[in-house]
Design a protein around this nucleic acid. Structure first.
Lengths: 220, 220
DNA sequence: CTGCCAACATACCAACCAGCATGTAGCGTA
DNA sequence: TACGCTACATGCTGGTTGGTATGTTGGCAG
């Protein structure tokens, strides 16, 4: 301690004077953590890499978060959850035709070429951490449940208004849709070929059309 | 070096005299590596843990494999690939009704309660390593391709024999089936609830039945 | 102008990591 | 019985990890 002081005095190297904006610092940390977790997984994303990517020092990190685990939890709740909500839940609120709405969402998944779909980040983290850490699992399950419930709900409403076939079980169909999206996301990520996700979207859309109530088909 | 020699002579601790069966040692390493990679991912699976699980020392590991990466590659080629082949390729060879055969395979996926399905190990590794390491990606893609091709092939034959609807594209359907299986595997792994995989199997089977050619429906 | 505290910055640490250098036991061979 | 080589066993190391202890500064209250 004394040595450190003396050294600091002897060699007054320029200190990194930073933002002094705690909210912004926290947000930068979350975004950087999200990026690095997406790149290499939670366990393999090193704090030093995250900090470098965020342009933030370790002291700032541990001022805002108790530890790496807490940072991961915050990424789920404050980055991934809003993203899934924005992609899959909010667009379904107060729509006329649920099938059309779902098709529209699915087709929009291809616009982001690199990160095949935001849902994949959810899937990545779930695959990696759910068996290892109950805290991750619970938080991720909440997102999955919201996704499934929003989809099932809109399908139920569609059944009431006669847009959706009565013999589909909304909860089952919602689960199947999510499984398809996640599954194709995996395949596309592995193939690293946008053609895979395009083909997947085509197939998912075809399946979604098959849910439409007879006499309610739009085209063809 | 000299110190080590002297110490060894001074304190002749019992040396671990092991198998002396190189094939078996190698196999134990592969199995242990497969287990640990399944548990915590390739990057986070430490060699020491793998070695402890295998009951093998580090010298033996580095005698049989150049490095950790090579061990991972070997797990793909000598553990995962045969597993997928045994589950999804061989059962499809010379079957009468492809739909029945696929349904049978899918329904058998539920018998293993803990590790939801062997395909998930494939999916896990693909999700984790494909974006990071081309060697992993290529080897995993070979497995995916074989899986998809075997499925597509059996569907094509089914179309010739009139068991499968002519308006399904075998390659597309095969891809969709794989996506469904992997997707439900993900959901089940995250939910950690066998009910999820049961529901998934039910839905996949329902979809498979929809591929059957008209006039060829078995029951109902 | 001064104290004080939030918001960091820096230096450091023990634990762990993959990998390597070196030693050696057992078995086949002559 | 001696030799040699395969198949390991063991000890070590430099680098990295998450985490902490302590120093420092901008800005605001008084």
């Amino acid at each position: 301690m004394l040595v450190g002081m003396l050294a600091a005095r002897k060699n007054p190297k320029r200190r990194a004077t930073r933002l002094r904006d705690p909210e912004r610092t926290r947000e930068r940390l979350l975004q950087a953590a999200s990026r690095e977790i997406y790149r290499s997984g939670f366990q393999s994303a090193s704090l030093d890499t995250i900090l470098a990517s965020a342009g933030v020092t370790k002291g700032a990190l541990y001022y805002h978060f108790k530890n790496k685990e807490a940072l991961g939890y915050a990424v789920i709740e404050e980055v991934i959850s809003p993203d899934v909500r924005g992609t899959w839940v909010q667009p379904l609120e107060s729509v006329k035709d649920p099938i059309d709405a779902l098709i529209s969402i699915v087709q929009d998944l291809s616009v982001r070429p690199e990160d095949v779909c935001g849902g994949c980040q959810l899937n990545n983290l779930a695959q990696e951490m759910s068996p290892l850490d109950a805290g991750f699992r619970k938080r991720l399950e909440i997102i999955f449940d919201a996704w499934r419930e929003a989809t099932a709900s809109v399908l139920r409403e569609g059944q009431i208004h006669g847009n959706v076939r009565r013999n589909v079980e909304p909860a089952d169909a919602a689960g199947l849709l999510i499984a398809m999206v996640e599954g194709y996301g995996s395949l596309a990520k592995n193939a690293q070929d946008p053609k895979v996700i395009k083909a997947g979207i085509k197939n998912i859309v075809g399946w979604l059309r098959s849910l439409r109530a007879p006499g309610n088909r739009k085209r063809g």
